[in-house]
Design a protein around this nucleic acid. Sequence first.
DNA 1: CTGAAAGCGCTTACAG
DNA 2: CTGAAAGCGCTTACAG
Lengths: 341, 341
Amino acid sequence: MKAITITDVARRAGVSPKTVSRVINGEAHVRPEVRDMVARVVADMNYRPNAFARGLSSSRSFLIGLFFDDPASGYAASIQRGALERARALGRHLVIEPISFDRSDWRRLLEDTLQGLRLDGAILTSPICDRADLIAVFEEHDVPVVRIAPGSDFDRTPQVRMDDRAAARTMTEHLLSLGHRDIAFVLGNPKHSASERRWLGFQDAMTAAGITPDPRRVFQGDFRFRSGLEAADALFGTSPHPTAVFASNDEMALGVLVAAMRNQIAVPRSVSIVGFDDVAIARMAWPQLTTIRQPNFEMGAAAIDLLIERRNAGADGKSETCRELPYELVIRSTCMPRSLA
Amino acid sequence: MKAITITDVARRAGVSPKTVSRVINGEAHVRPEVRDMVARVVADMNYRPNAFARGLSSSRSFLIGLFFDDPASGYAASIQRGALERARALGRHLVIEPISFDRSDWRRLLEDTLQGLRLDGAILTSPICDRADLIAVFEEHDVPVVRIAPGSDFDRTPQVRMDDRAAARTMTEHLLSLGHRDIAFVLGNPKHSASERRWLGFQDAMTAAGITPDPRRVFQGDFRFRSGLEAADALFGTSPHPTAVFASNDEMALGVLVAAMRNQIAVPRSVSIVGFDDVAIARMAWPQLTTIRQPNFEMGAAAIDLLIERRNAGADGKSETCRELPYELVIRSTCMPRSLA
DNA sequence: CTGAAAGCGCTTACAG
DNA sequence: CTGAAAGCGCTTACAG
């Protein structure tokens, strides 16, 4: 199948290739009747511009890179899906790129990609979005970056975020409103800046309620199931055990839930458990997990929007630099008022 | 930062651009000392070929498309990860493309991609890999395809698979060896050809053991958690309930597990439950799920291998057309001998 | 084994 | 508002 080129279209339409180019790129300065006519020929001939020719002459690639540390995590998957749908709707393609800082040649690999692919933009997710040396590489190669949930250098790039601290505070207040006072907290992976924000939000609410969190009720986790399980095994080994546990994400909350079962502690009758994220597995547990819904899909889509707006606004033009998306407290079945315990 | 071109390298090395091209592409017919010298200049100058110029002149893109129906499923995520790692190791980039047959213009969207991006190859996953009209579009555009776990038209494209039928038979034999005779089966989503193969494997083992599966113990599911839950609620409403349940994937097995808990049926004491896939959540349940490990990561990587081998072999050359990967029975904690029940 | 010429299919920069 | 010319940075096809 021989591909149709812009020259074929121009010949058939009786105009120059440049005019066809103007029409397909929606540029101004084409008489309406010419525009319509050319558009009709384009559709008739089923013409599609060659992305490589376009990229070569204009150094626009229509390719957006999504950079991940661990592309297989549930967190990454939902962001990816949001970015994917929006990118396709806007005629861009999404290239997935893993970054491994373990490899000493990560920088060379990245530069290969950046120089070879001439990405129109890049999306950086947590935790790699907080590496200043990484961002610098993108800056050197003039690739616009949007970061999702960064924890520092807020003025350096546009960003998409949600208020983890307020969300954790809301969740803690929910537990307090149920009468809980002895609340354990499982910290998230310290590499992710969100971990600290969630911990601060927990403290905010406790302090406001006149409670000083007990250090013996705080456990270091890493956002993985196993760490929640181990924290909770330690927790339930003490007597009395806390009446509620706030895990910094759902996967760890599930670990806490399993530990409770192993230790024959009824949930929520004897202990309330809450998570954070609202990933799919929150509804596959029994009881179903009370959690905070984090709008990952929407954050992925918003990151694409910011990148495109930026591009359309031009280097000088002003465009949005921070989009904050709302969270939501999702009450399901792992909590119960303390007085009924 | 002005990019370095092949001409810059050629000038510095005192050779023609064509010779540099030969070196970076590893072509034959370059004197070893020239090759080494040029390679040194390339490294010194930190030269990286422009993918668009390359693509435009050679119609090779170094881009491989991974096509999904539902890119957010856990199944898709692990295949993606395998494909991603192997593709990057071989200097290819992975573009993720969703296909929605719900949209009447799916074909046009796909053709835009195929003609615009000139993919070097495409990986099709289940269930879309069994759509003959989809495969035809790739054929028309001369894009080599490798399918993962197809259910028909085996001679049409190279493929990566595992023996679902034998795996299901193995799992069933495990249950039979524990003394179970009254085994319920939850069917998978009929759109996926693997669903039927698993069902056949179950029947194989039952028949070989002289048992005719009871139709009232067979439930239609769709691979989603909820369908497992609903099937099992029906199941546990009967008396006596089966002593074992084989769900066609882990997510549904988790649904069965939750249903058992809701119905106060002890697992595995009163009922054994097994799944299929060995996704991450199989270990986040309590008790941990006995299942079949499906090598998704390896299948994604193998698909890339087949695509590259094919390309290197040329249109006429022979290359591998079917790679079957091994499964594994993973015994965890949701099963128990029937005699102890 | 090596290179000069032409071309891939667009867009940029300019002219009118 | 429209177009002719040149060029993007490689590789192909050919010659020697």
